[in-house]
C-alpha cells in the first residue's frame, strides 16, 4: 500500500529528527533546571490576569460551564482528576454519566467505574428502541449557598471569599454530615486521610493561572472554566448570551456556580448514578 510505504519512510525520518532534536534538547535540559513546579512556572498562563499581580480574594469570581452537547464521554477528565489528586480506587471527585432515553420515556443511567475507563461498549440491556443517548459530566457545584458548609460542626468545610467550597483536612473529624447534606453527591470520605474529600475545581491550579485539570485535558471543549471579571473570557460571553443555561436541582436553592449548557430535563431534577 502506498500509505504504509510512506509510513515506514516517514518513521525513519521521525526517528532521526527525534535523535537530533528530542534527545539533544532533552540532555541539555538535564543540565539546566527550569525552575520546576515549586518555583516560578515556565508554562504560559491559561487564565489571564491571575499571575503577576496581587490576588484579591474578595474581588475574584469564577464560573464553570459544562456543555452537554459537546461531551464525547472519553473520560479524559476522570483520568486527569484521579491522577492530579491520586484519588483512591472506587472514589470519584468527578465522573461522567451516560443517559439513554427510549421511545417510551424510560431513562437509563449508567456510570461504570465513574467513566475512568471511558465508554468502550454500548449498553446491551435496553429492551426498547433507543431514542437518544448523551453524556453528563458531574463535579462539585460550588454552591453559593452550600448545605455542606452549613452542617459542618467543626468549621472544616467552608466557602472561600472567591467562591470555592473547600475542606480543611486538619480540622475535619470525618463525621460525614456534609456527605449526607450534599444534594449532588459529590462528597466522599477519603479512606486514606479519613476526612471528607471532594472536587475543588483545582483551586491550587487556578491560583497559579492554570485551568482545572479536567478542563485542561478535555479534547472536545465541553468543560469550560474562566474568570467572570474578565469580559473577554468564554464563560462571561456564554453567561451573557441568550443561550439556555441551567443548573442542577434549582428548586433546592443552593445556587450552584456550575452551569450546564444543553442540559436535558431528565438530568436537571435527577442526580447521581
Amino acid at each position: 500500500m502506498e500509505s504504509s510505504k510512506f509510513a515506514i519512510d516517514k518513521d525513519r525520518r521521525t526517528f532521526v529528527k527525534n535523535v537530533l532534536k528530542g534527545t539533544i534538547a532533552g540532555s541539555l535540559l538535564l543540565v539546566i533546571p527550569m525552575g520546576g513546579a515549586s518555583g516560578s512556572l515556565e508554562v504560559p498562563a491559561q487564565i489571564p490576569g491571575i499571575r503577576g499581580r496581587k490576588y484579591d480574594m474578595f474581588k475574584q469570581r469564577f464560573a464553570f460551564i459544562v456543555n452537554i452537547t459537546r461531551c464525547i464521554g472519553c473520560g479524559s477528565c476522570c483520568v486527569a482528576d484521579k491522577r492530579e489528586y491520586n484519588v483512591p480506587d472506587g472514589y470519584y471527585r468527578t465522573w461522567v454519566e451516560r443517559y439513554i432515553k427510549d421511545f417510551d420515556g424510560n431513562v437509563y443511567v449508567d456510570c461504570p467505574n465513574g467513566g475512568l475507563d471511558g465508554y468502550q461498549t454500548p449498553r446491551a440491556d435496553i429492551p426498547g428502541k433507543v431514542r437518544d443517548t448523551f453524556f453528563v459530566p458531574k463535579l462539585c457545584n460550588m454552591c453559593k449557598k452550600p448545605s455542606c458548609v452549613q452542617v459542618c460542626p467543626v468549621g472544616a468545610t467552608f466557602k472561600t471569599p472567591d467562591g470555592f467550597v473547600l475542606v480543611d483536612k486538619e480540622r475535619c473529624v470525618g463525621c460525614g454530615y456534609c456527605i449526607q447534606a450534599c444534594p449532588y453527591s459529590v462528597r466522599f470520605l477519603n479512606p486514606v486521610t479519613h476526612t471528607a474529600d471532594k472536587c475543588t475545581w483545582c483551586y491550587h491550579r487556578v491560583r497559579k493561572g492554570l485551568l482545572p485539570a479536567c478542563v485542561n485535558v478535555c479534547p472536545a471543549n465541553a468543560r469550560k472554566f474562566g474568570d467572570l471579571n474578565d469580559p473577554e473570557s468564554e464563560v462571561t460571553r456564554i453567561l451573557a448570551s441568550p443561550d439556555v443555561i441551567t443548573v442542577l436541582k434549582p428548586e433546592l436553592g443552593n445556587m450552584p456556580a456550575l452551569y450546564y449548557e444543553g442540559l436535558r430535563r431528565e438530568v436537571v431534577y435527577e442526580c447521581g448514578p
Partner: peptide, 20 residues
C-alpha cells in the same frame, strides 16, 4: 468566617501533578 483561613493557603500549596 467560621473556619481556619490558613486552610486556603494549604490548598493553594498543593503540588501540581499535571502541567499543560
Amino acid at each position: 468566617g467560621h473556619y481556619r483561613a490558613d486552610a486556603i493557603q494549604d490548598e493553594v500549596d498543593r503540588p501540581l501533578r499535571h502541567m499543560t
